[in-house]
C-alpha cells in the first residue's frame, strides 16, 4: 500500500463522519489584515471533542494564506481568529519537536513542515486542505490524540545504551564508520507519523510499530551497546518485526527522511542471521 492509497481509504471514512458544516469567518471578532498575495483556502478539519460530542464531524473554515505559509499557520489562524476551541499540539514550528503529526490531505505530515504551495492543486487556485488526526491512536480532542500507547511501545524496546563493561575514564572510542552505521535512526523525533501510517498498526494496535523498531535499531547497531540480543528477543515477539509487511508507508511518512522500512529489514536480517 502506498501513501496515496492510504488517502483513498481515509476519503471513505469521511463520508461516514457526518455533517460538513461551514463556519463563517469572523466568529471571533474582526479579522486581521489579509497579507498581499494571499489566497483563500478552505481548511476542512475533522473535529471531535470527547467532552461534549458523541461523534466526530467535519468543519470547514475559510482562511487567507500565502503560498509559503505552513499548514500550522492555517491552524493557528483558525484557533486565534475563528474558533478558539480548535485543539492541536505544536511547539517548535520547524519540524524538530515532533508535536504536530496529522493527516493532511490523507497523508501523515507535520503541520509545520508542509507548505500551502505544496498542497495546492494545479496553478495555485483556491482549494481545500483536509486535516484529520493521525490514525490508530485514540482521539482526545480534534487533532490531539493519546500518545501514551505510542510511547509505551518505544519504552518497551529498551531505548537506551546498555553496556556491561567497566566505564572508561574518557569517552568510548567509536570509529567514524561505526558511528555512521546507525546515523539514520538517530534522527527520529518520535512524531508517530510512521507508526500511524502503518496498516498493520491500524488493525493490530499491539504491534510495536515502526517507530519503536527504528529506536531499537538505533541501539542494536551502535557498536558501544551490548544488549542487541535482549532487544532482538523483544522484537522477535508475536507483536514484533515479523508483523511488518514491508509496505513502505512508514518510510514515505517520515518527516526526517529516515529509511524506516530499511531499518526494519536490517533488524529482521539480524534476527535471521543470529537465529536461523
Amino acid at each position: 500500500m502506498t501513501a496515496s492509497a492510504t488517502s483513498a481509504a481515509s476519503a471513505q471514512d469521511n463520508t461516514s463522519a457526518g455533517q460538513d458544516k461551514t463556519n463563517a469567518a469572523g466568529s471571533r471578532g474582526s479579522q486581521p489584515p489579509v497579507p498581499e498575495g494571499a489566497i483563500t483556502i478552505t481548511v476542512k478539519i475533522r473535529r471531535f471533542n470527547t467532552e461534549f460530542d458523541d461523534e466526530p464531524r467535519w468543519e470547514s473554515f475559510q482562511v487567507p494564506a500565502l503560498p509559503t505559509d505552513r499548514v500550522l499557520n492555517l491552524l493557528h489562524h483558525v484557533k486565534w481568529y475563528l474558533d478558539g476551541t480548535l485543539t492541536f499540539r505544536r511547539s517548535c514550528a520547524h519540524g524538530i519537536c515532533g508535536s504536530d503529526a496529522m493527516r493532511i490531505n490523507g497523508v501523515n505530515r507535520l503541520a509545520c513542515k508542509v507548505l500551502v504551495k505544496d498542497l495546492l492543486a494545479g496553478g495555485g487556485k483556491a482549494t481545500t486542505i483536509t486535516i484529520e488526526p493521525i490514525k490508530g491512536l485514540p482521539v482526545h480532542k480534534d487533532l490531539l490524540v493519546d500518545m501514551e500507547p505510542f510511547f509505551e511501545a518505544f519504552r518497551a524496546v529498551k531505548p537506551y545504551l546498555i553496556n556491561y563493561g567497566q566505564e572508561p575514564t574518557r569517552e568510548r572510542i567509536q570509529s567514524a564508520a561505526d558511528r555512521e552505521r546507525f546515523d539514520d535512526t538517530t534522527k527520529c523525533i518520535l512524531c508517530a507519523c510512521c507508526t500511524t501510517s502503518c496498516p498493520v498498526y491500524w488493525t493490530e494496535g499491539s504491534y510495536f510499530g515502526p517507530a519503536a523498531i527504528v529506536n531499537a535499531h538505533r541501539f542494536i547497531f551502535d557498536s558501544r551497546d551490548e544488549a542487541a540480543e535482549e532487544r532482538l528477543d523483544i522484537l522477535n515477539d508475536v507483536d514484533g518485526v515479523w508483523r511488518c509487511r514491508t509496505t513502505f508507508n512508514c518510510t514515505d511518512a517520515c518527516p526526517r527522511g529516515i529509511q524506516v522500512t530499511k531499518a526494519i529489514q536490517e533488524v529482521k536480517r539480524a534476527l535471521l542471521f543470529k537465529r536461523v
Binding site: 572510542i173 546515523d183 558501544r224
Partner: peptide
C-alpha cells in the same frame, strides 16, 4: 553524555 549513549561525531581516531 557520551557514556549515556550520545552519538557524537567522531575524529578519525574515534574520539569525540
Amino acid at each position: 553524555l557520551e557514556k549515556m549513549g550520545l552519538p557524537f561525531n567522531r575524529t578519525p581516531e574515534g574520539k569525540i
